[in-house]
Design a protein around this nucleic acid. Structure first.
Lengths: 341, 341
DNA sequence: CTGTTAGCGCGTTCAT
DNA sequence: ATGAACGCGCTAACAG
């Protein structure tokens, strides 16, 4: 037979252990919890043995129900297939484990309805805190959650939602990129970004770019969104020849992939015809042409710090919302190895 | 103030709804569950309204505790940063949602101790089923779990553990690769794989390769593990010139990355000096040299079918363990575009 | 130090 | 059709 629901019911419980050891449930509970100091060695040993013999595991559901603490934290991710998200998530999980928490990840696939469902879900499982890496529509749900538990935003802000925020120092990243391009004597820079969809980090990056490029007198810049006409648009950019050496600045890894694919499509020499610098550092960057110069984000650390923010709040920290901005690291490769003039 | 534990306690409960609607808890419970047929329209409407007004959400912990069904399934992944795992996981999650289940993912980072901890964890949260994509040491834990819930293996078998298995048809994949290489008149093939660590799919692939290559009279082959001397080893392979045109066969995406990096390091022309075909199809394959020919796995489908296997078992299916083998899809790119002689 | 008791939020008999 | 009462597995008072 295969009656797993019966099997589930037949799992050994705290009472079983108590009877087997000839003690009360309370003693077993104390053994499980932090109160082992309150137990005589003799009884502790008996309980320990019974637990081992019976293969007992405390039921976290029941524990959580009783204590109101589930040791669960949730993470809402817009796109699980984005390497950035994965890396951050890995950092979060590492920190979680270090502190005895577990992580429940929900992927919305950039879909608002899924976001709503997942938020309800996480709430129904009594998570203690939430890490959000989505657009954060459904402000109502989020606000309700915010009242019940701490919440930290990763990479993207959500309008009007107050919570800690951890991400990249975007102005600084732009500054580093432009400085590098200028030193390598590129003069005409096209920033390529995924389409605007409200993602705050995208908006910040483009905003900073436009502001800073206008302040550098010998440089000029423009902004382009990825999409079906990307190859054409890049071709156009390359054809206009007036403002000096050209370079592309990809606002994230996805844009970098799209750009290099498009450049290949139009038969561009990578990277003699045009320079390239990209935010994020993906493992295949060294392989494309002479290698893609990157501004790497400290993704693992971002994840870990996000969890630590949560933990502080859970422990009662009540200061105003903080923002943690990390600096990127420049990794120079062939795509910007043009000689300074 | 910031007393989230108090906030947690103050969440609206079924009793609140019942009082607000002037009915009993039982009625609310029936409304939540499937028994809505047993309720008068009048009372159902009152409950519905109260739920909306109070923003009530059933507590899944309590539900699971009572019914023994948590609607949770677990997935154990060896390496969350491997694109293959991510893709499969995405498929699993899609299927889960479609059937009202939620997915808890645990990443072991290929570490046995973490595997043990995570298994205990998943058990303690009363998951209803488990999808395993690890080496599966800790047979004891796995066996215990197997007694309590259905279990399906993805990509890698675990010795002696009976459970459904879904993955790639490795012999067929090897056959397709060799056939393709032969048609493109490569004669000397080096299979490159990550180090043996007991991963069954690796062993199967290498085994099939050795067997099949020996059956093709005009071809010869050898096997190489990735590692610190990879570049040297590849150089050696390329230097020996006796058996005709050479090609590399990378056993998965990670090996493909390592190989192309190494080939670049030794100044190899991609892919004029040597052909290349790789298992898995990663998004950057088109970008390297003239593009990497791939044998793509239907990863999404593998994930979905894995969940469906679980679901069948949960519904009482009691047949012997099944194995689902999927065929890869050949995607030809520049790396094997050598002209037939 | 240890056992007894009373719930946590919910589903499920039983009555009615 | 509806409500009262019990218990899921566990923790947290309170006694002793």
């Amino acid at each position: 037979m295969n009656d797993f629901s019966a099997a589930q019911r037949s799992r050994v419980t705290m009472l079983d252990v108590a009877e087997h050891a000839g003690v009360s449930k309370a003693s077993v509970s104390r053994f499980i919890g932090d109160d082992r100091a309150l137990l005589s060695d003799a009884i502790a040993r008996r309980i320990e043995q019974s637990i081992a013999e019976l293969g007992y595991r405390p039921n976290q559901m029941a524990r959580g129900l009783k204590r109101g603490r589930t040791r669960l934290i949730g993470m809402l991710v817009a796109d699980i297939r984005n390497p950035y998200s994965i890396a951050v998530m890995h950092g979060v999980e590492t920190a979680c484990r270090r502190h005895g928490y577990s992580l429940v990840v929900c992927n919305t696939d950039r879909d608002d309805e899924q976001e709503r469902q997942h938020l309800a879900l996480l709430r129904s499982y009594n998570i203690e805190g939430l890490i959000v890496n989505t657009l954060g529509h459904h402000r109502d749900e989020l606000d309700e959650l915010k009242r019940e538990m701490p919440l930290v935003l990763v990479d993207r802000k959500v309008d009007g939602l107050d919570g800690d925020m951890v991400g990249l120092n975007n102005p600084q990243a732009i500054e580093m990129a432009l400085e590098h391009l200028q030193q390598r004597s590129y003069r005409d820079v096209l920033m390529v970004t995924e389409p605007y969809d409200g993602t705050s980090s995208r908006i910040e990056r483009v905003g900073s770019f436009q502001k800073q490029i206008s302040q550098r007198e010998d440089m000029r810049g423009a902004v382009l969104e990825t999409g079906s006409s990307l190859a054409n648009d890049l071709q156009t950019f390359l054809n206009t020849s007036d403002s000096g050496p050209k370079a592309l600045f990809c606002a994230n890894g996805v844009a970098a992939l799209a750009c290099t694919l498009a450049l290949r499509e139009i038969g561009c020499q990578l990277f003699e015809d045009v320079g390239l610098i990209a935010l994020d550092d993906l493992d295949w960057y060294p392989l494309v042409g002479s290698g893609i110069t990157a501004l790497a984000q400290p993704t693992e650390e971002i994840g870990e710090r996000a969890f630590e923010c949560l933990l502080k709040r859970l422990r009662g920290d009540d200061e105003v919302a903080r923002t943690l901005d990390f600096a990127p690291v420049l990794i120079e490769r062939g795509s910007t190895r043009r000689q300074a003039e």
